[in-house]
Simulated assay, not measured.
Amino acid sequence: MITMNAQKNKIHPHKYSMWIAMASITMMFIGFTSAYVVKRAQANWLSFELPAIFWVSTALILLSSLTIYLAQRQFKARNMSSYKQLITITALLGLGFAVCQIIGFSDMKNHGLALDSTVSASFIYVIVGAHILHVLGGVVVLMVLFFRAYRTRIRTYSAVPIEVASTYWHFVDGLWIYLLIFFSLAR
Protein backbone atom coordinates (compact mmCIF):
# COMPACT_ATOMS: atom_id res chain seq x y z
CA MET A 1 0.00 0.00 0.00
CA ILE A 2 1.38 3.38 -1.03
CA THR A 3 1.32 6.02 1.66
CA MET A 4 0.36 9.64 1.01
CA ASN A 5 3.97 10.78 1.58
CA ALA A 6 5.27 8.31 -0.99
CA GLN A 7 2.64 9.56 -3.43
CA LYS A 8 3.61 13.21 -2.78
CA ASN A 9 7.31 12.47 -3.39
CA LYS A 10 6.72 11.07 -6.86
CA ILE A 11 7.54 13.31 -9.79
CA HIS A 12 4.69 13.96 -12.20
CA PRO A 13 5.14 11.97 -15.47
CA HIS A 14 5.08 15.17 -17.56
CA LYS A 15 7.80 16.71 -15.43
CA TYR A 16 9.85 13.53 -15.66
CA SER A 17 9.43 13.48 -19.45
CA MET A 18 10.53 17.10 -19.63
CA TRP A 19 13.70 16.36 -17.66
CA ILE A 20 14.50 13.47 -20.02
CA ALA A 21 13.88 15.71 -23.04
CA MET A 22 16.10 18.44 -21.59
CA ALA A 23 18.87 15.90 -20.96
CA SER A 24 18.60 14.77 -24.59
CA ILE A 25 18.65 18.35 -25.89
CA THR A 26 21.65 19.10 -23.69
CA MET A 27 23.50 16.11 -25.13
CA MET A 28 22.71 17.29 -28.67
CA PHE A 29 24.10 20.77 -28.00
CA ILE A 30 27.15 19.34 -26.23
CA GLY A 31 27.74 17.33 -29.40
CA PHE A 32 27.35 20.46 -31.54
CA THR A 33 29.75 22.50 -29.43
CA SER A 34 32.25 19.64 -29.20
CA ALA A 35 32.27 19.37 -33.00
CA TYR A 36 32.73 23.14 -33.17
CA VAL A 37 35.84 22.90 -30.94
CA VAL A 38 37.30 20.06 -33.00
CA LYS A 39 36.68 21.81 -36.33
CA ARG A 40 37.98 25.13 -34.98
CA ALA A 41 41.45 23.58 -34.76
CA GLN A 42 41.61 23.20 -38.55
CA ALA A 43 43.72 25.60 -40.60
CA ASN A 44 40.81 26.90 -42.71
CA TRP A 45 38.76 28.11 -39.72
CA LEU A 46 37.55 31.71 -40.00
CA SER A 47 36.93 33.63 -36.77
CA PHE A 48 34.40 36.46 -36.78
CA GLU A 49 32.38 38.55 -34.38
CA LEU A 50 28.83 37.51 -33.63
CA PRO A 51 26.19 39.97 -34.81
CA ALA A 52 25.48 42.62 -32.18
CA ILE A 53 21.76 41.85 -32.37
CA PHE A 54 22.48 38.51 -30.68
CA TRP A 55 23.04 40.56 -27.50
CA VAL A 56 19.64 42.22 -27.95
CA SER A 57 18.07 38.79 -28.33
CA THR A 58 19.83 37.76 -25.11
CA ALA A 59 18.16 40.62 -23.24
CA LEU A 60 14.79 39.55 -24.66
CA ILE A 61 15.15 35.93 -23.62
CA LEU A 62 16.36 36.91 -20.14
CA LEU A 63 13.34 39.18 -19.77
CA SER A 64 11.11 36.33 -20.96
CA SER A 65 12.49 34.13 -18.20
CA LEU A 66 11.34 36.74 -15.70
CA THR A 67 7.88 37.01 -17.27
CA ILE A 68 7.30 33.24 -17.27
CA TYR A 69 8.42 33.08 -13.65
CA LEU A 70 5.91 35.80 -12.81
CA ALA A 71 3.24 34.06 -14.91
CA GLN A 72 3.69 30.86 -12.92
CA ARG A 73 3.39 32.80 -9.66
CA GLN A 74 0.24 34.53 -10.89
CA PHE A 75 -1.28 31.22 -11.92
CA LYS A 76 -0.65 29.74 -8.50
CA ALA A 77 -2.14 32.87 -6.93
CA ARG A 78 -5.24 32.29 -9.09
CA ASN A 79 -4.81 35.66 -10.80
CA MET A 80 -5.75 34.50 -14.29
CA SER A 81 -5.87 37.98 -15.82
CA SER A 82 -2.21 38.68 -14.97
CA TYR A 83 -1.29 35.10 -15.86
CA LYS A 84 -2.73 35.48 -19.36
CA GLN A 85 -0.93 38.77 -19.88
CA LEU A 86 2.39 37.42 -18.67
CA ILE A 87 2.13 34.25 -20.78
CA THR A 88 1.38 36.42 -23.81
CA ILE A 89 4.33 38.71 -23.08
CA THR A 90 6.59 35.68 -22.64
CA ALA A 91 5.50 34.25 -25.98
CA LEU A 92 6.00 37.62 -27.70
CA LEU A 93 9.47 37.97 -26.17
CA GLY A 94 10.26 34.46 -27.44
CA LEU A 95 9.15 35.48 -30.93
CA GLY A 96 11.20 38.66 -30.59
CA PHE A 97 14.20 36.53 -29.68
CA ALA A 98 13.74 34.41 -32.83
CA VAL A 99 13.32 37.53 -35.01
CA CYS A 100 16.53 39.02 -33.61
CA GLN A 101 18.35 35.78 -34.34
CA ILE A 102 17.11 35.79 -37.94
CA ILE A 103 18.19 39.44 -38.28
CA GLY A 104 21.58 38.29 -36.98
CA PHE A 105 21.70 35.64 -39.70
CA SER A 106 20.90 38.32 -42.28
CA ASP A 107 23.69 40.48 -40.89
CA MET A 108 26.10 37.55 -41.16
CA LYS A 109 25.04 36.96 -44.76
CA ASN A 110 25.49 40.67 -45.59
CA HIS A 111 29.07 40.37 -44.27
CA GLY A 112 29.82 37.43 -46.58
CA LEU A 113 29.09 34.76 -43.99
CA ALA A 114 26.34 32.76 -45.64
CA LEU A 115 25.38 29.28 -44.48
CA ASP A 116 27.64 27.66 -47.07
CA SER A 117 30.46 30.23 -47.05
CA THR A 118 32.68 28.84 -44.28
CA VAL A 119 32.64 25.95 -41.86
CA SER A 120 32.61 28.36 -38.91
CA ALA A 121 29.58 30.26 -40.25
CA SER A 122 27.81 26.96 -40.97
CA PHE A 123 28.26 25.90 -37.36
CA ILE A 124 26.73 29.16 -36.12
CA TYR A 125 23.73 28.78 -38.43
CA VAL A 126 23.12 25.16 -37.46
CA ILE A 127 23.61 25.54 -33.72
CA VAL A 128 21.71 28.82 -33.37
CA GLY A 129 19.05 27.57 -35.81
CA ALA A 130 18.51 24.45 -33.71
CA HIS A 131 18.15 26.64 -30.63
CA ILE A 132 15.64 28.90 -32.40
CA LEU A 133 13.53 25.84 -33.21
CA HIS A 134 13.52 24.85 -29.55
CA VAL A 135 12.48 28.38 -28.54
CA LEU A 136 9.67 28.38 -31.12
CA GLY A 137 8.49 25.02 -29.78
CA GLY A 138 8.29 26.69 -26.37
CA VAL A 139 6.32 29.59 -27.88
CA VAL A 140 3.77 27.09 -29.24
CA VAL A 141 3.41 25.57 -25.77
CA LEU A 142 2.95 29.03 -24.25
CA MET A 143 0.19 29.82 -26.73
CA VAL A 144 -1.53 26.53 -25.89
CA LEU A 145 -1.40 27.50 -22.21
CA PHE A 146 -2.77 30.92 -23.05
CA PHE A 147 -5.76 29.50 -24.92
CA ARG A 148 -6.36 26.92 -22.19
CA ALA A 149 -6.49 29.73 -19.65
CA TYR A 150 -9.45 31.21 -21.51
CA ARG A 151 -11.43 28.01 -21.78
CA THR A 152 -10.63 26.29 -18.49
CA ARG A 153 -12.00 27.12 -15.08
CA ILE A 154 -9.33 27.86 -12.54
CA ARG A 155 -10.67 25.22 -10.13
CA THR A 156 -10.05 22.41 -12.60
CA TYR A 157 -6.82 23.64 -14.14
CA SER A 158 -3.66 21.96 -12.89
CA ALA A 159 -0.43 23.93 -12.32
CA VAL A 160 1.63 21.11 -13.87
CA PRO A 161 1.49 22.46 -17.46
CA ILE A 162 2.79 25.91 -16.49
CA GLU A 163 5.42 24.33 -14.25
CA VAL A 164 6.62 22.11 -17.11
CA ALA A 165 6.54 25.00 -19.60
CA SER A 166 8.38 27.26 -17.17
CA THR A 167 11.07 24.66 -16.57
CA TYR A 168 11.56 24.22 -20.31
CA TRP A 169 11.58 27.97 -20.93
CA HIS A 170 14.27 28.55 -18.29
CA PHE A 171 16.19 25.68 -19.84
CA VAL A 172 16.23 27.21 -23.36
CA ASP A 173 17.16 30.54 -21.77
CA GLY A 174 20.10 28.95 -19.96
CA LEU A 175 21.04 27.06 -23.12
CA TRP A 176 21.24 30.31 -25.06
CA ILE A 177 23.43 31.91 -22.37
CA TYR A 178 25.74 28.88 -22.58
CA LEU A 179 25.87 29.13 -26.39
CA LEU A 180 26.54 32.87 -26.35
CA ILE A 181 29.36 32.49 -23.83
CA PHE A 182 30.71 29.51 -25.77
CA PHE A 183 30.73 31.39 -29.10
CA SER A 184 32.26 34.47 -27.47
CA LEU A 185 35.09 32.49 -25.89
CA ALA A 186 35.67 29.87 -28.59
CA ARG A 187 36.33 32.20 -31.50
Rank of each mutant, 00 (worst) to 15 (best):
39 K>R: 13
142 L>G: 07
85 Q>A: 11
85 Q>T: 12
108 M>K: 08
97 F>L: 04
15 K>I: 15
16 Y>M: 15
51 P>W: 00
29 F>E: 05
58 T>Y: 04
120 S>F: 03
129 G>E: 05
25 I>V: 14
127 I>H: 03
68 I>E: 06
79 N>A: 12
53 I>H: 01
17 S>M: 14
50 L>M: 08
158 S>I: 13
113 L>V: 02
83 Y>V: 05
96 G>Y: 06
114 A>C: 13
143 M>Q: 12
170 H>T: 06
101 Q>F: 04
123 F>Y: 09
158 S>A: 12
122 S>K: 07
108 M>N: 08
58 T>M: 03
41 A>Q: 08
144 V>R: 10
53 I>T: 05
145 L>K: 14
16 Y>I: 13
26 T>V: 11
95 L>V: 15
151 R>V: 15
66 L>F: 09
67 T>A: 04
152 T>Y: 10
29 F>C: 02
33 T>R: 04
155 R>Y: 13
66 L>Q: 01
133 L>M: 14
81 S>F: 14
24 S>M: 15
37 V>S: 09
152 T>R: 08
24 S>K: 11
31 G>R: 00
116 D>V: 04
91 A>L: 06
127 I>D: 02
87 I>Y: 04
14 H>Q: 13
99 V>G: 07
40 R>N: 06
86 L>V: 12
157 Y>E: 11
115 L>Y: 07
20 I>H: 00
165 A>L: 06
92 L>T: 08
61 I>T: 05
168 Y>T: 11
38 V>D: 11
97 F>Y: 10
123 F>V: 05
182 F>C: 00
103 I>A: 08
162 I>Q: 08
73 R>T: 12
37 V>N: 07
104 G>F: 01
109 K>L: 05
46 L>D: 15
76 K>M: 14
128 V>Y: 01
134 H>A: 11
127 I>N: 01
22 M>Y: 03
48 F>P: 00
108 M>A: 08
19 W>A: 13
170 H>L: 09
39 K>W: 04
18 M>A: 09
131 H>G: 01
176 W>R: 02
116 D>C: 03
137 G>D: 06
130 A>Q: 05
176 W>Y: 06
11 I>D: 14
51 P>V: 00
120 S>H: 02
47 S>P: 06
96 G>V: 04
95 L>D: 11
40 R>V: 02
172 V>S: 03
53 I>Y: 03
185 L>Q: 01
106 S>W: 15
62 L>V: 11
33 T>N: 03
69 Y>W: 15
137 G>W: 11
93 L>G: 07
36 Y>N: 02
136 L>N: 08
33 T>Q: 06
156 T>N: 15
102 I>L: 11
138 G>C: 06
44 N>H: 11
140 V>W: 13
141 V>E: 07
48 F>H: 01
52 A>P: 00
122 S>V: 02
54 F>Y: 07
